[in-house]
Nucleic acid binder design. Sequence first.
DNA 1: GTCTATAGATAGATAGAC
DNA 2: GTCTATCTATCTATAGAC
Lengths: 182, 182
Amino acid sequence: MQDRRRDIIEGGLATLREYGYAGFTQPRVASRAGLRQSHLTYYFPTRLDLLAAVGRAAIDGQLAAVDAVLDGSSFEAVASAIAKVAVRHESTRVMMALAQAADQEPQLRALFRELADGIVLRTDRFLKKLIPAATEADARLLHALSVGLAVVDLAIGRPDGKRRAAAVLEAALTMISKAARP
Amino acid sequence: MQDRRRDIIEGGLATLREYGYAGFTQPRVASRAGLRQSHLTYYFPTRLDLLAAVGRAAIDGQLAAVDAVLDGSSFEAVASAIAKVAVRHESTRVMMALAQAADQEPQLRALFRELADGIVLRTDRFLKKLIPAATEADARLLHALSVGLAVVDLAIGRPDGKRRAAAVLEAALTMISKAARP
DNA sequence: GTCTATAGATAGATAGAC
DNA sequence: GTCTATCTATCTATAGAC
């Protein structure tokens, strides 16, 4: 039931992963989903409808990935764990696409805000378990830092990008824990 | 001399500022520059040629802006100064466009890398004047943090985004200076 | 509900006039 | 060198067949 919708959304995610926002076209998504563009518009009448549905799925997926990473990590491993989920080019492309979509289409802003707030909330909860004195400001810092590392690495594509990002995140975590108990 | 080229590049920058990478089309750029698309292709035969020239101008401009901000700032003011140059939606759109272009067009990667390295270098030099024990890793952290704050704020568009970004940057700077002399 | 043909708009690139 | 007409490809959306 509603396999078509699921297929289309999956095709939309694949398209964003590969081409980003600029390459997100209905023909490409339709081809990935195994139907024609003119049929796709039956399920999602406009490009914006499609984008909203795909964005919703992307956010759910990303928050689930964050949960999975934060749940089972020790303090030592958390930096490389965050780096692993943040600096994955496929998901960075999807997240950047959402950011751009939110910038260009005001109707999608709430969606992106939900993503950012969700990640900060999860990071905050996790951080407080490790460092009781940590604040939400620390979580916001870690979030923005992860985003920046991911974006820069996507564009530069250094072979050791993931490792470098993990090192920066680890330094930030160490500083946060030191600052919390001087 | 070569006013046309200059006009076109200026039109390209304006287009990126307003529409981002996805909206960067030759007709739009040409219209901004006061000529037709079919004429624009005489100066820049392909879209990639145009993008490279506009990207070059964007990088020069951004590095100059970073220089201007870092030169005349006290320690107290630097966080809000960085936030001011980083969290400007027009320039964020341009920088994100470059990141995406670099991701999709391998020939543009060197350009983006030059931008990132240039900012880190400048940040490092500035930081060492404020905090002699600061390292390049600290500069990389500040750079990634600025990028992340800018991207997130662009997509969410909070009215007090600039202030919030400045607060996070200030917290990071304070932590760096404390960590450097424990 | 499932699907296609096709219209209408816009993109990028070429050939060639002046 | 300056500029335009125009071709081809691609995109989004609509009308309508089954």
